[in-house]
């Protein structure tokens, strides 16, 4: 079912949108993404040299630990989220597959575009994911995440070596590009895609909450969407 527009007028009862595994995944994932972006940025362009005795310093070591550990948790989370797309409620798979072939979705998409261009007086009220936000999630979060996970594990395979399961599972990434520097480049571009996503995602959610007629941020906390007139 996914997205469905609700009538513009009248009071609407609260709706349960996100089940608790989805919400837990969202916030854990958000935390991991922040850690990954910060540590990843600092791995590619490190801090100014630390001074002191080399044997007592482990700056890059800890950064890499933070990045690799949270990266693997991020991948596990992503896997779980894919699993939950099949086993969650009627909205949980929409993240991966917007129902763009349905008229209700395309109508909602254009309504959202108009609303965001300040052409609509009344904010659309709906259940499910906001179609515009959904597209942004797919293009700037889901696909870059998949790409970061693939390139990330391919680079981890470089560290763990030819005999590792990482190389067995992701070594083919190396064959695609030949030079593994390209993996780093793609991984870095994905970092920036996620930065762009984080900015637009937070803005859209908070704005919808403040100016629109339904809850967004608290929906991700409680799972329940409440509507205003």
């Amino acid at each position: 079912m996914g997205y469905q527009r609700l009538p513009d007028d009248g009071d609407l009862p609260p709706q349960r949108i996100f089940d608790w595994p989805c919400r837990a995944w969202h916030w854990i994932n958000a935390l991991l993404v922040v850690v990954l972006i910060v540590s990843g940025y600092l791995i590619g362009t490190p801090l100014p040299s630390s001074s002191g005795d080399t044997s007592s310093l482990y700056v890059m070591g800890w950064l890499r630990f933070a990045h690799l550990a949270s990266g693997q948790l991020f991948a596990l989370g992503f896997l779980f989220r894919v699993y939950w797309a099949f086993n969650g409620n009627q909205y949980s798979w929409q993240l991966f597959l917007p129902t763009f072939w349905k008229k209700s979705w395309t109508d909602g998409f254009w309504a959202q575009i108009k609303w965001n261009l300040l052409l609509l007086k009344l904010a659309p009220r709906y259940v499910g994911l906001n179609p515009v936000a959904n597209v942004i999630m797919l293009v700037l979060f889901v696909l870059p995440s998949l790409l970061t996970i693939l390139t990330g594990f391919a680079m981890l395979a470089e560290v763990t070596g030819h005999d590792s399961w990482q190389y067995f599972c992701f070594g083919w990434m190396v064959s695609i590009f030949g030079n593994t520097l390209d993996l780093h480049l793609l991984h870095r571009l994905c970092l920036w895609a996620l930065v762009c996503f984080t900015m637009s995602h937070i803005y859209i959610a908070i704005r919808e909450d403040a100016v629109g007629r339904q809850t967004m941020v608290s929906t991700m906390l409680s799972g329940i969407r409440q509507y205003r007139r």
Binding site: P46, L47, S49, S50, S51, T54, S55, L57, Y58, V59, M60, G61, L63, R64, E158, V159, G161, H162, G171, W172, V174, S175, G178
Partner: peptide, 28 residues
């Protein structure tokens, strides 16, 4: 996978670099 002999091309320069300790320490 790139038809290179593993015995010589199995590891990265970085993995056996004698300056690796400085990398891990964040000294550049």
């Amino acid at each position: 996978r790139q038809r290179r002999p593993k015995m010589f091309y199995g590891q990265r320069i970085h993995d056996k670099c004698y300056r690796r300790a400085h990398f891990d320490a964040g000294q550049f």
